[in-house]
Nucleic acid binder design. Structure first.
Lengths: 215, 215
DNA sequence: TCCTAAGCGATTATCGATAATCTAGAGCGA
DNA sequence: TCGCTCTAGATTATCGATAATCGCTTAGGA
């Protein structure tokens, strides 16, 4: 942890994000300012500013004079996020179908390969990371920065990782379901691509909850 | 400025937001920390934290050691936001059509009245505020907090206010176009409501750019 | 015993000062 | 004159310390 490319606040932010995603900080855990201050040997100011950022990113919650804690991602919230994802990614698919370049397809196929590799190795974490990246590539290809921000605001990786990490999924099957998306994109058919994206998300959403019925 | 209901940071944030929306701080203007410090008689820390929040809200942009300035809302960005709004509000309409209560309708009709009043008084600012609130009521009625957050993240009021303030619109006509939405909701027809919402947004978007063709 | 309230330890919020960095402009050499 | 370096002023980033607040404990009284 000797990097110092940017301002301290950014480094602290990255560190805490990493710990949340890795599970070092678990949902509900408190994030105490002075603890980080001591551990990192910095002052309180940059820590506080980093926490403000993380609050805006919805990774933590804070209450005045009561501190910050890692946000609980409730099953309700995860459930609710899928219709929103579906709506946004349907739009992304429509837009991307006319804007996708060869580079887009190269990226998508690379991520598909990565997903298959991860499935092979039974690496759930890796699969989900590459899955998220696959979708991100499409949203980027849609060429709409507002859409990209909105989608990014859903924190797909974080939510999915945190919540699914325990369930048993058929990783190979998940990797496989991305092929139709690429096919539709290649056909340059906006409506079809949109529909395929929507179905894909909704299917993944229900699979997820099929696999983790309990709370 | 003697209020002090909550923590200072929140008050400072509110103040700056108000100034941006009012136009006291115009897009591109610098927001200097020490200036606010002097003016408000507070220390730099809460000002900086407020600015971090505003940055996350995308009302300002900051660069390390170069300070904050009010974000330019480019015409491109406004253009891009409409498809996203349309997608989100289509979903909101679908969900709200089954969940809307009598209270929802009461609120919607009140806002419609407010819009008509504002149109009568040729009060563009007022019309847009109530327009935004009308849509917000529907998104709230959809009962999906993730959707509500995503929609809120678009900062409809801010963007619209900042950008449209100069153009000449037929206020009465705008107020009028909200009736079909309420009608569709009352019919409890999800697909219809979704479609009406989408058309409404897309129509408003193109009207806007019809009226403000120039940059 | 039960209730109340004052006190204490822990933590956050704010302060005032210092260090780091940027920007514009003066001075200087070619 | 032009271009470059360097310095001064302005501004942001960070620091170390203090004030405010919270939750819990516990002493005291009925």
């Amino acid at each position: 942890m000797t990097l110092q490319r940017s301002v301290m606040r950014e480094q602290i932010k990255e560190l805490v994000i990493q710990r949340i995603l890795e599970g070092t900080y678990k949902p509900g855990d408190r994030v105490v300012e002075l603890q980080l201050v001591q551990e990192l040997g910095v002052s309180q100011a940059p820590v506080r500013e980093a926490l403000r950022d993380l609050e805006a990113m919805r990774l933590i919650e804070t209450e005045p004079y009561r501190g910050a804690r890692v946000r609980e991602v409730t099953p309700e919230e995860l459930t609710e996020s899928y219709p929103v994802r579906a709506a946004l990614e349907e739009l992304a698919g429509q837009l991307a179908s006319t804007l996708a370049t060869e580079e887009t397809f190269t990226l998508l196929e690379a991520e598909m390969q990565n997903m298959h590799d991860a499935a092979e190795a039974n690496d759930q974490h890796g699969l989900l990371v590459h899955d998220a990246r696959f979708h991100e590539v499409i949203v980027e290809a849609a060429g709409n920065s507002v859409l990209l921000d909105s989608w990014g605001g859903l924190r797909i990786e974080a939510f999915t990782l945190v919540s699914v990490i325990k369930s048993q999924l058929d990783l190979g099957a998940i990797a496989q379901t991305h092929q139709p998306i690429v096919d539709a994109l290649r056909q340059r058919d906006a409506d079809l691509t949109g529909k395929v994206m929507r179905d894909h998300i909704e299917h993944f959403g229900s699979t997820l909850f099929g696999g983790t019925t309990h709370v």
